[in-house]
Nucleic acid binder design. Structure first.
Lengths: 189, 189
DNA sequence: GTCTATAACACGATAGAC
DNA sequence: GTCTATCGTGTTATAGAC
């Protein structure tokens, strides 16, 4: 575990504030106050507000891409791959709850890196849908609407950042298992 | 169908812009440009930017409260009530896709009406959870974690505004049925 | 109902002292 | 590494002409 630099501290504090009010509503003065310093002092560690947003979002997006690549290269069943995706979201979100809020809500405020982010997101969704379609072909998954299935799963997983902080008693493994069961097997008797 | 006033036109245009960039990132100049007028002219129809946000969010929140009250007063089964909740979200979101984005993402920028909004939201979630708990007691719903069930369903339903505009071929009734099946019966064979 | 002009203030970012 | 002071610009909103 590398020790946290002052720049990391700024980025983590910013992520917390961005979660509460969104990127546009958080000023550099807000961020400085939360750090206990003056706004001008922030610029000794970072070059711009935009750089902070980029640092938060792109690193997480690349984590998802990397995790998805491992999953699609495995030879597990489609259902098992979906369970791995649930676990991937639970793990990344548990480790960076605040950053996930920016990824979900403030990606459109990326400037230089917007196209790159959208590319990663589109690839991720295409891989996700591919797994579901495989599962339908293999009769592991019901032959209903694959896009509705992906939409339902992915929006639930993307919203985990809102919910994990309230449920600290559930560890990541248990949460992943419970959530997989609800998403895959449904809720009715 | 009452005819659209200039004020309604401003509110609807604002909702569209708020969906794209969020309340804080949309300026009165942006809004005026989208309307084809100058920023100062907006103030002949509305009193403040805040008033626009309030008009968008509170009316939708009250629609949900009203719909939920009808559902809990019915004597349907718990599963049937959940299907009605899905239909409620599909209907409201279909009729006001842009406004749903503000409800989900910009409620924290409400000033005077923030407490009222939070009260409506908390009551809605409590009623939702109550229906699930009833279903568990009546053995209609699996005895797993009711909060995870609510979280999963509600976050999917709250994200419908992102998805409905892309799927104009599906009408509200079909979408509601397909989504109910995925959420209630799961996806596996 | 829309315009031009502008008030009053907040914003991101920089310069230079310590 | 943090500060004070400030630049240039953008922000919501108002005043008053047409």
């Amino acid at each position: 575990m590398k020790q946290e630099t002052r720049k990391d501290e700024i980025i983590n504090t910013a992520a917390k504030l961005f979660k509460e009010k969104g990127y546009s509503a958080v000023t550099m003065r807000d961020l400085a106050t939360a750090m206990g310093i003056k706004a001008a002092s922030l610029y000794n560690h970072i070059n711009s507000k935009q750089e902070i947003l980029k640092a938060i979002i792109i690193s997480i997006a690349e984590e998802f891409t990397s995790g998805m690549n491992s999953i699609i290269q495995s030879e597990a069943s489609s259902i098992s791959k979906l369970e791995s995706i649930v676990a991937l979201h639970v793990n990344i979100t548990s480790n960076n709850t605040n950053g996930m809020a920016s990824l979900n809500n403030d990606w459109m405020h990326l400037e230089d890196q917007l196209d790159y982010y959208l590319q990663l997101r589109n690839e991720y969704e295409a891989n996700f849908l591919g797994i579901i379609n495989e599962g339908v072909t293999a009769s592991e998954i019901k032959n209903s609407n694959p896009e509705i299935i992906m939409f339902s799963m992915l929006t639930t997983l993307r919203s985990l950042y809102l919910w994990i902080p309230k449920k600290e008693d559930l560890n990541a493994k248990n949460l992943g298992q419970s959530l997989s069961e609800v998403l895959i097997s449904g809720i009715n008797n």
